[in-house]
Design a binder for these strands. Structure first.
Lengths: 108, 108
DNA sequence: CTCCATATATTGGGTGCCCGATATATATTG
DNA sequence: CAATATATATCGGGCACCCAATATATGGAG
């Protein structure tokens, strides 16, 4: 059971398993500023408390690129990712859905 | 690919795949008021646009009960679920984690 | 009682997120 | 030119969410 953390006092939450939210978070982070992969990994680590493995992050970035939602710019050994117009539009719609699903969760 | 909706104009978002958020949402909904299973399903349908199947909902409720996070009260053919003190405490921690992960997402 | 609607419950299986390990490429340092 | 560090990339597999189909139980209408 992935949510073993549900029984552990030292785990912050039950939603430590946020499958399916990775792409959404990536799009959101890149909307703040373009970043390369390891920067994204670092930001995710700060927020989630766990650093995504390369096998998690890079396939996700590739899928988003293949879907036309973000574009790449190679600089040295790093690749800077940024949102395409489609990515921005998609993020907007995703946020709306997110708000509808989690209405009231953040209140009080 | 579950996220086929990423390519469809009529789908609200990329986060339609919210695996791992079901238990969190159930705890949140029950913190508002005790409900029985089908009420929960209806509320989830309103928020997510899709009604969870029985094979999704009831095992989730059972797992939360077995974890001591909610209790059941049978009334006729329906079972009213409500949070235990452990469930309330767990939801509080889950919310904190949720807020940390999604800081800034709902802004502007 | 019989029929039907509603609620709960179980089973089997698909899907794809995500991880760990490993590989490749580029930069930097000495 | 090695040697090391960093970034990207791939591969195989586990696992848990989630669904569709089906089963059981309770209650109400006639």
């Amino acid at each position: 059971m992935r949510n073993d953390c549900m029984k552990e006092k030292d785990c912050a939450s039950y939603c430590c398993d946020m499958r399916g939210m990775l792409s959404f978070l990536i799009l959101f982070l890149l909307s703040k500023k373009p970043m390369h992969g390891q920067e994204i990994a670092g930001e995710l680590e700060k927020r989630k408390g766990m650093r995504p493995s390369p096998g998690t992050l890079y396939p996700a970035l590739r899928a988003l690129r293949d879907a036309g939602l973000l574009k790449e710019a190679k600089k040295g050994k790093a690749i800077t990712y940024s949102l395409t117009p489609e990515g921005k539009a998609g993020l907007k719609r995703a946020k709306e859905h997110f708000c509808r699903v989690f209405t009231g969760v953040l209140e009080q």
